[in-house]
């Protein structure tokens, strides 16, 4: 129905600020998981900033570096890294799954000739890339 918004008295129920916890009376788990997904970026950022700080300390000499390495052994840091790792993995999982979903809709992203590449290949490719990257970095870190 099209109506004259000047003369019709309508009522819009406002969305709450905490809609990811409660949206007009209901909790939606997917909204909550969305917020967790976005929150992963905060942990990514914190880790990167910490990494940059470590690099900076290296320029300050051996002492500074060793002291920081020592403090990383403390409980709070271990807990932080554990949580950060969980969030980082959740990011990998959701992000890589997203390319697969995009491939599965309509024309997808990758076409071979006139056909859309079946999404399973994109899934294998993106999760496979994760596995390869993870192994290569671990290998280089341990052996270089």
């Amino acid at each position: 129905m099209m109506l004259d918004s000047e003369t019709t008295k309508t009522y819009t129920r406002p969305i709450s600020k905490a809609w990811w916890l409660r949206d007009r009376g209901y909790f939606n788990r997917r909204y909550f998981m969305f917020l967790l997904r976005e929150l992963t970026s905060v942990f990514v950022a914190l880790y990167v900033v910490l990494f940059i700080y470590e690099l900076f300390l290296l320029t300050k000499g051996q002492e500074a570096h060793a002291a920081f390495q020592e403090s990383l052994r403390s409980g709070p840091f271990i807990v932080f890294f554990l949580i950060a790792l969980l969030f980082a993995l959740y990011h990998s999982w959701t992000w890589l799954g997203l390319t697969t979903k995009m491939q599965a809709a309509g024309r997808g992203l990758v076409k071979i000739g006139t056909k859309t590449l079946p999404p399973i290949f994109v899934a294998l490719g993106s999760y496979g890339a994760w596995l390869v990257a993870t192994c290569v970095i671990a290998y280089l870190f341990l052996t270089l």
């Binding site: 990011h91 992000w95 994760w130 993870t134 970095i137 671990a138």
Partner: peptide, 8 residues
């Protein structure tokens, strides 16, 4: 971030 950060 998805590919590299977890292992780091």
């Amino acid at each position: 971030a998805a590919l590299l950060i977890p292992i780091h």
